[in-house]
Structures are given as structure tokens and as C-alpha cells.
């Protein structure tokens, strides 16, 4: 080890954002190693969904705005649902097994927190990467869908895209928290089967929740994905009810915030003994 005296001193970060910024290079290097695979799927899968669900299945469905929450075609109705569901799916993929890997299998987090970084710094960085993945894949989704004429305006498309970051965060923090405290990976199968798939199918992405029985409709409207889908749809269709926007944003933002505190608590409990 060389002994120079003009040392650049290592320091403690002043806040979790500053701490997370120090992990930018780590996540960038990791992503550089894996991006090729994810780019192809994130381009091809929205195309397949829009073609199969929107165009082909939608061809059998009458475009009645009073039945389809104001959409004039099934394609217009389902496109925002697919977008929000995509954001959710990406998040589940990034904060289940990968989080367990960092805590348990590779113990990467233990190496990180042996430095001047703390647990909140590590979580912010990981969630930052998840949001990057959501942003990238939803941006591709929006670009792929645009030629099908599903966006009422460019501004609407842009806001719908930004909404996905909020949807992503609302799912990311609580699911991250759940993963961070799990002793082994077997509950993930349940998380997917009883969490992700029912949310995907019954939260108003593919059909108006008004079609459900009353109690099921109430249940569907309590799920974060419904809030995300409805918020997205308002902007893609250009039919914005600002009071509902406030409700959706408060719900999703509140969930993200609660999930954040839960995540810090659970990961701390898991790693500090």
C-alpha cells in the first residue's frame, strides 16, 4: 500500500441521496453487463401485447365510450392499462429475487454498508436503479404505442409516462421491504401468484372495474394498480378529472412513503444484529 501524504480523504455522505450517488458507478457497471438482454424484451413485449390485446382481441369488442370509461376503442382503453401493468411488472422483477440476492446470496449489501454508506443510502440507490429500469421500459412502451394512435396528445403521453415513475415507486418500496426481510425465496412464488397476477388481471387494465360485482369493484379500486391505471388512462384519453388525479397521486405517493419507512426498518432489522 502506497503512503502518500496528500491524501484525498474518504468521508461520510451528508444524506442518503448523496450516499446513493456514490453507488451510481456500481449500478451503471452492472447495467452495462445486462442491458442487451433487457432491451430486446422491453421493446418486443409491449409490441406483442398491443398487437394481441389491443388490435386483435380489441377487434371483437365494440368501442362504446360509455362502456369503456370514455375510450372510443378497446385499444385506447387497454393501452394505458398495459403501460401501468408493465411498470408494475418491471418493479416486481427488480425488487424480489435481486434484493434477496444482495442480502442473502451474494451479501453485496454487507460489503456496501461496511463502508461509510448506510442502509438508507443503499436502498435509495437500489430504488433509483429500479426507477431507471421502469423509466426506460415505459419510455419504449410509449414510443411503441404512439403509432397506434392511443394518445390523445403529446402532453398526455408525456404525463402518462411520468405517472409510471410514481406507479413504479408505489410498488417498489413495499415489495422491496417485503423482500428485504424474507429468510428465503419461497414466498416469492406466492407474491407473484397471489399478488402480481391478480393485480394484473383484475385492476382495471383489461376491463372496466364497473363490470365486476359491487364488492369486487370496491376491492379492485383499493389496489394500487387500479389507481395507477386510472391515473394513466385519464391522461392518455385526455379526460382529466383533477380531483381524482389528487386522490390517485395521494394514494400512490402515500404508499411509496409508507413502503420506504417499512423498507428501511426491515432491511435494518435484517442486516444489523
Amino acid at each position: 500500500m502506497p503512503d502518500r501524504t496528500d491524501d484525498v480523504r474518504s468521508t461520510a455522505p451528508s444524506n442518503p441521496i448523496a450516499g446513493a450517488a456514490r453507488m451510481f458507478d456500481y449500478w451503471a457497471i452492472l447495467y452495462r453487463r445486462t442491458w442487451k438482454g433487457s432491451v430486446i424484451t422491453s421493446f418486443v413485449s409491449p409490441l406483442l401485447y398491443v398487437l394481441a390485446m389491443g388490435v386483435l382481441l380489441g377487434g371483437f369488442i365494440q368501442g362504446d365510450p360509455s362502456e369503456l370509461e370514455g375510450a372510443t376503442s378497446y385499444l385506447d382503453f387497454v393501452a394505458p392499462g398495459l403501460l401501468a401493468a408493465q411498470a408494475m411488472t418491471i418493479v416486481f422483477g427488480e425488487v424480489t429475487y435481486p434484493v434477496m440476492g444482495m442480502v442473502k446470496w451474494h451479501r453485496t449489501y454487507f460489503g456496501m454498508t461496511a463502508t461509510s454508506l448506510g442502509i438508507p443510502d443503499v436502498i435509495v440507490a437500489h430504488l433509483g436503479f429500479v426507477l431507471f429500469r421502469v423509466a426506460l421500459s415505459c419510455a419504449v412502451f410509449v414510443v411503441v404505442m404512439a403509432p397506434f394512435g392511443v394518445f390523445a396528445s403529446v402532453g398526455g403521453a408525456l404525463v402518462a409516462f411520468l405517472v409510471q415513475l410514481l406507479v413504479g415507486l408505489a410498488f417498489a418500496t413495499p415489495v422491496y421491504a417485503l423482500s428485504a426481510g424474507l429468510k428465503n425465496e419461497s414466498p416469492f412464488a406466492l407474491v407473484y401468484r397471489l399478488g402480481l397476477i391478480p393485480l394484473f388481471l383484475f385492476s382495471g387494465a383489461f376491463f372496466p372495474v364497473a363490470n365486476l360485482d359491487r364488492w369486487m369493484e370496491v376491492l379492485a379500486k383499493a389496489t394500487p394498480l387500479w389507481h395507477g391505471v386510472d391515473l394513466t388512462r385519464m391522461f392518455t384519453l385526455g379526460q382529466v378529472d383533477w380531483s381524482m388525479v389528487a386522490v390517485h397521486v395521494a394514494y400512490l405517493g402515500g404508499l411509496a412513503l409508507l413502503g420506504w419507512f417499512w423498507a428501511v426498518r426491515r432491511l435494518t432489522k435484517r442486516m444489523v444484529s
Partner: peptide
């Protein structure tokens, strides 16, 4: 970090220290 190279392991660690 088993997914990174030897050099990158050292590099990212140095970055953690600011």
C-alpha cells in the same frame, strides 16, 4: 461482487467512500 471484474470490485468500492 461475483458479477463484476476484479478491477471493478475495487473501483466501485473506492467510489462508495466518496
Amino acid at each position: 461482487d461475483t458479477e463484476l471484474t476484479v478491477r471493478d470490485n475495487l473501483y466501485v468500492y473506492g467510489r462508495y467512500f466518496g
